[in-house]
Simulated scan of single mutants.
Amino acid sequence: MQIPVINRSHHPLPAYQTAHAAGMDVRANLTEPITLKPLQRALIPTGLFMEIPVGYEVQVRPRSGLAYKHGIGIVNSPGTIDADYRGELKVLLVNLSAEDFVVQDGERIAQLVVARHETAEWQEATELSKTERGTGGYGSTGTK
């Protein structure tokens, strides 16, 4: 699959880091470092603009290394970039650690996963089919 991308950053396009990776690492495109204080969040620009094919989305996911080593996550994880969005891709990072974290220009800040999706229509009903689980919600399947 080919996805048209405008790269207004001075960094390479997102790329898979291993042969069987699902996500491509995307980099921060900054004129100066951004310091995230504990529990602070910020939109980090990437300089990328894309034309995602209809029927697909690009999911923005945290990088496990940043999460484990520094407590850096993504607030709306996974974020979704829709096929009709043409603005700059920005990543909403959050610092969940007790220490400041400095985002540097060119730092790999997130992963992008291209995913197919369906478009659904709601069908109003007055009754739903019965299942063994029924209406059991949060924690209902882990009690045995």
Rank of each mutant, 00 (worst) to 15 (best):
P33T: 03
L30G: 05
K37I: 01
L48N: 06
P38H: 11
R63Y: 08
A28I: 02
M24P: 05
P14N: 08
L13E: 10
H11Q: 11
S64H: 05
P14V: 02
A22D: 00
K69N: 06
A15E: 06
G55Q: 06
E51I: 02
L66Q: 05
T18D: 02
A67Y: 14
R61A: 09
V60C: 11
V26E: 02
A42P: 03
H11V: 11
P62D: 06
K69W: 12
P45F: 01
P45E: 03
M50Y: 03
K37R: 15
H20P: 03
P45C: 01
Q40W: 10
Q17H: 14
R27M: 07
T35I: 15
A28C: 04
L36V: 09
L13V: 09
L13N: 14
R61C: 11
V58H: 00
P53R: 01
P12W: 11
T46L: 13
A42D: 10
V60Y: 08
P33L: 05
T46D: 14
K69T: 06
G55R: 03
E51P: 01
R61P: 11
H11C: 07
L36N: 09
A21L: 07
V58I: 15
H20Y: 14
R41V: 04
L43E: 13
Q59I: 00
Y16R: 10
H10F: 08
T46H: 12
M50I: 10
P53H: 02
V54P: 04
I44W: 07
T18G: 01
G47C: 07
T18V: 04
H20K: 09
T46G: 14
K37Q: 07
M24Y: 09
A15N: 01
Q17S: 15
L13K: 07
P53N: 01
F49E: 13
A67V: 12
M24K: 13
G47N: 09
G65T: 01
S64M: 04
L66C: 04
G47W: 07
G47F: 07
P53K: 05
Q17N: 12
E32G: 11
G23I: 00
L36C: 08
P14Q: 05
